[in-house]
């Protein structure tokens, strides 16, 4: 469970470029819920996920995970609780290391890293089994550098890596945005499967209204650093893309949304 209470984040405080990116966000996400997050460019979505992961520290308000106050925890410490997949496949993996080394790195998340071999025989076998489940034939390429994989393959492996250490929270920041539609579809399907199998509490940022409604149990809209829409259950089931777009437009003060190519579909 994630409990966020009135968090504020300001970038570049006291400079001409000061940006109040989060302006009092409250959100409680029960265990196992899959939340999709939408909002226009600069709404604060990435900042919000960053605040959950520890990349940005909230200056006021509090964040608790499973009842533990993590507001002041830095990223490495929170990593035992939170797994992430980034938008840019390059950011989320070590391209110069092999696939199995990347997996070993992820498998040790939240554990003390000692002087034992990172890749022992039993671990290699385990990685091979797990990566075979992706159905991409990568089980024969464990010694290849991560950088040799395509963007889609890398996001698939990143998703798998997120499950290796048994953390209960998964943060996805537009993790299919850099992929072609077919591959994006595949990675989204994989996301759904992995979230269900591991009963992960998930936040997924997307610019696609279609995805926002098709995936997950609840949809949240951020605008100018605040949550302006929060739908789930019946209400959400009754929504379709045009509805959501209309709601979106209202929040943006009636701007002509058809200009915003990012919001279509």
């Amino acid at each position: 469970m994630i409990t966020v209470n009135g968090i504020h984040v300001t970038f570049g405080r006291g400079t001409p470029l000061e940006k109040h990116a989060l302006r009092g966000v409250d959100l409680t996400i029960p265990e196992g819920q899959f939340v999709t997050v939408i909002g226009s460019n600069g709404a604060g979505k990435s900042t919000f996920l960053g605040a959950l992961a520890g990349d940005v520290i909230a200056e006021t308000g509090s964040i608790a995970i499973d009842g533990v106050d993590v507001t002041r925890w830095a990223t490495p410490k929170r990593a035992s609780l939170v797994a992430r997949v980034f938008q840019d496949p390059m950011v989320g993996s070590c391209t110069a290391l092999t696939i199995e080394e990347n997996m070993a790195l992820a498998a040790a998340r939240g554990r003390r890293r000692g002087l034992g071999f990172a890749l022992r025989g039993d671990r290699r076998r385990h990685f091979r089994e797990r990566i075979a489940e992706l159905g991409l034939g990568l089980e024969n390429r464990l010694h290849d550098r991560m950088g040799l994989l395509s963007g889609g393959q890398r996001q698939a492996v990143s998703l798998l890596m997120a499950t290796l250490a048994g953390s209960k929270i998964l943060l996805l920041d537009e993790h299919t945005a850099a992929l072609d539609p077919g591959t994006a579809e595949f990675v989204l399907g994989l996301t759904r499967r992995i979230v269900e199998e591991n009963r992960l509490t998930t936040l997924m940022v997307t610019h696609s209204m279609r995805q926002a409604l098709d995936y997950g149990d609840r949809t949240v809209m951020l605008h100018e650093g605040r949550i302006v829409l929060d739908v789930s259950g019946e209400q959400r089931a009754g929504l379709d893309v045009p509805h959501l777009l209309a709601l979106f437009a209202k929040q943006r003060g009636g701007e002509d949304i058809t200009d915003d190519s990012l919001l279509i579909g």
């Binding site: 830095a74 070590c94 110069a96 040790a108 939240g110």
Partner: peptide, 12 residues
């Protein structure tokens, strides 16, 4: 190689 990723994987 990638400090940001390393931190996200819990590396100090």
């Amino acid at each position: 190689v990638n400090a940001r990723m390393a931190r996200a994987q819990g590396v100090e």
